[in-house]
Amino acid sequence: MTVTSLTARLKAQARAEGFAACGIAPADAAPETAERLRDWLASGAHGEMEWMMSRAHHRERPKALWPEVRSLIMLGMSYAPKEDPLRLESETDIGRISVYAQGKDYHDVVKKALKRLARWLVAEAERDDAKADVKVFVDTAPVMEKPLSAAAGIGWQGKHTNLLNREQGNWLFLGAIYTTLDLEADPPGEDHCGSCTRCQTACPTDAFPAPYRLDARRCISYLTIEHKGPIPEEFREAMGNRIYGCDDCLAVCPWNKFAEQARANRLFSARAELAAPKLADLLALDDAEFRTIFAGSPIKRIGRNRMTRNCLIAAGNSGDSALVEPVKALLDDPDETVRDAAEWAIERLA
């Protein structure tokens, strides 16, 4: 079996496993990533995400994480939404949850597909009397998925720093299979953003100091998910009714118009209770109820207190007098950050 035929069959198998894009890069791909990462971390733009700093040496290049790796199989699975995420912007009594978190936890779905594909690859190599060692990664490992995916030709990093694909838009979960096999590499992806700046101007908090550069400390996704303390007041009004993540820079990208076929993927269809949850209902949740409702969702990891904080900010922005009583009930909450947000929301609603 030739390397070329194995590569072609691998890509066909990846499609059969539900991946919308598959490309291969050599283990030394994207060497410029190391310097860019160092500069970004030195600027402090990673905020409280200390895990970015603590394993930066592993992120800088694939061989630092696994010295034996020879080929990088980069994959994208579409989670393109059926409806425009921006349609709920004016629905002030509901909380907006990022598209990626409305359905099944992508960590589980993507990792299972990666493992099946990796097992297939090992078996195919054995049939050709070759030995293939593999490792699979999705999001939680120190892997720079976006620049490596661009190096593998499945797209390019747009001005919003996320990966873009001409056929799938930017609604892609990324995963990787590292292998000791020498596979045929694909040419790197080419930038097709052109003069477009829609993602830059759509950002509610001006989180892009320059095209292709993100300051996480100003990003609503970071503030609602990664940031643990009180939301800085300068960003609270701009958050609107976003309570978990933000899709604005993704939703306005014109390349998404080609993602119609991607919407056939039903693995990540929104759960009814997460598509447009009422703020009043979310504000009433205790810890046990929070865990029950968000079981099987990536939202669960931020905990009840952080979610309640986010919902209080949204309530304060709503102008909805019906939320005054649910907010008042949290003024004496045991959590200091929740109390701070409740006080701010009451002042706004009053």
Rank of each mutant, 00 (worst) to 15 (best):
H57N: 08
G175S: 00
N170I: 10
P232C: 08
N305G: 12
R87N: 09
A12N: 09
W156C: 00
A14I: 03
G189C: 09
D215M: 02
N256I: 05
D287T: 14
V122H: 10
F258S: 12
I299V: 15
N305E: 15
E35N: 15
T197D: 15
V122R: 13
G153Y: 02
D248A: 13
Q102E: 12
E32P: 11
L267F: 13
N162C: 13
G153N: 10
G44A: 06
T308C: 14
D320F: 11
S71Y: 07
D287R: 12
V338A: 06
K104C: 07
D139E: 14
M49L: 10
V99Q: 07
F258K: 09
A101T: 04
D320V: 07
C193V: 05
A101Y: 02
A329S: 14
E145C: 04
A80N: 05
A284I: 05
S78A: 15
G169S: 10
R309Y: 02
I299M: 09
G153C: 06
D93T: 11
G44E: 06
P31V: 05
D182M: 13
Y79K: 00
D333H: 14
D281H: 10
L172I: 04
L214N: 03
T4L: 12
A132R: 02
N162R: 06
R166G: 11
L72K: 01
I220M: 08
E50T: 15
E68Y: 04
Y212T: 07
L312E: 06
A56P: 08
N317P: 05
K146H: 14
A34V: 07
P147A: 02
D333T: 07
H160R: 04
G169F: 02
D139C: 03
G158C: 01
I220T: 11
D84E: 14
V327K: 00
D340F: 08
D248L: 10
A21Y: 08
L117T: 02
C246I: 05
T224A: 06
T180F: 07
F235H: 13
A284T: 05
A341H: 11
R127N: 12
I97M: 01
G319Y: 09
T201G: 08
E325C: 07
I231Q: 03
F173K: 02
L172K: 00
K300S: 14
R87K: 14
R9F: 08
L282D: 04
G18C: 00
A314P: 04
R96K: 06
R263Q: 09
T224Q: 01
G169R: 01
D182Y: 15
D128A: 15
P277G: 10
A322R: 14
V338M: 04
L330F: 03
G169M: 01
A176K: 03
D133G: 13
F290W: 08
G240F: 00
A151K: 01
A25Y: 02
